[in-house]
Design a protein around this nucleic acid. Structure first.
Lengths: 210, 210
DNA sequence: TGCCCAGTTGAACGCGTGTCCAACAAAAAG
DNA sequence: CTTTTTGTTGGACACGCGTTCAACTGGGCA
């Protein structure tokens, strides 16, 4: 196996763990599978990570951080809060995000039994909520939104979206993505005092919304 | 070990599986643990269930069905739709339901990999949604609620509640139960054209709402 | 060129897993 | 009181798990 620096090897291990977890689930990701994916021996993993739990927490953290960063980058180039929120809602159920969302489901389930995972999961959930909070606050400032409790609204909206996404990813055919967008948009518009349809006036960017 | 009829033994196995899964989680529930809890040999389980996956799916189904039945019984004795919905929202985050909700988290996570679990999980989720739908429809009929899409509203409200409950159970301290009730009630009131505070005018029944 | 140390190996350890099945015992049928 | 049926036993099997560690490289420095 090609030698690497400590930094590179740690990254490579996490990369391999992500690939395996995408196929088998976080909970079913084993040391040997990760080593096999890397093309290395299994002993190598424990030379860089104290335990397998830390590898899994690292894998989740990386996937979730990248997903969040992508979302923030997309929001950054959009002008007003209404457009930003519309984009947020219209892309939340994109099939592209399904694998990352399965990671979230695994993390929420495992959080009670894996301390490192719980920490990663809860802190990243807070970051998503803060992303939403920033949009809402700027919308209240600009007069686009009417909301007396932006903090509560950010948690409510995120929870609504997560609850719907959960049905889509876990149960596949119970809810359609397009339908979920319409329902979420309606509830959020009422929550923020927006006119009906305000969050749906543009097609989702780069996402097939079936 | 005392002999039982096929029916009783199957029930006893599921009972024992539930007890174990309450402590260790669905995914960490083993044949030997279940047998030990029953005080029987481990071979007995496979005399009644083709595989361990079916035992776990059975355990989830039983817990979720009982939880649902309890909720429906409580709703049945309440008069008007507003009171029913208020009860629904005020009790959804009760600590009593935490163990059952952890079962849901496990089921949602495993659904993609355990067919029997996915079927149980998705059909029971639909039953919860239908419970909500019945309340909403009767409220629309009685003129208490204003809602053009009761079906969509039922899914949105359930998803909002699940999303909040998920934070409470998986992350423990990120959100408080009382706060979540207030947020959910606010959003639902706006969704159904209720006056602000309509769903919070009574204290939760038999639930410490910390 | 030769040494040294960091990166890497892979077998071994103890334990746990689901599944299987021949043997056993208790209840029911004759 | 036998015989048959049926619920139950518990060890065997093959495998997989996370973790450990002495032995083994191979690249960079002296």
């Amino acid at each position: 196996m090609r030698r690497m620096s400590q930094r590179d090897r740690r990254e490579a291990i996490i990369d391999a763990a992500i690939e395996v977890a995408m196929e088998n689930g976080l909970g079913a990701t084993t040391v040997r599978d990760v080593a096999g994916r890397m093309g290395s021996s299994s002993g190598l993993i424990h030379h860089y990570f104290e335990s397998m739990d830390l590898v899994l927490a690292g894998a989740f953290r990386r996937v979730a951080e990248k997903d969040l960063a992508t979302s923030r980058d997309e929001l950054a180039v959009l002008g007003d809060p209404v457009t930003q929120l519309a984009h947020f809602v219209n892309t939340y159920f994109s099939p592209d995000r399904d694998p990352a969302f399965q990671f979230w489901l695994d993390a929420w389930s495992e959080a009670g039994r894996n301390g490192a995972l719980q920490q990663a999961s809860s802190s990243l959930n807070v970051e998503w909520q803060q992303t939403l909070l920033t949009i809402i606050e700027s919308g209240v400032d600009s007069g686009d939104f009417e909301c007396s409790d932006p903090f509560g609204a950010s948690w409510s909206i995120l929870s609504l979206l997560d609850g719907l996404a959960l049905q889509i990813v876990a149960h596949r055919t119970v809810l359609s993505r397009a339908q979920s967008i319409v329902w979420a948009a309606g509830t959020i518009e009422r929550d923020l005092g927006l006119p009906s349809g305000a969050l749906r006036h543009q097609a989702p960017v780069g996402a097939s919304a079936l």
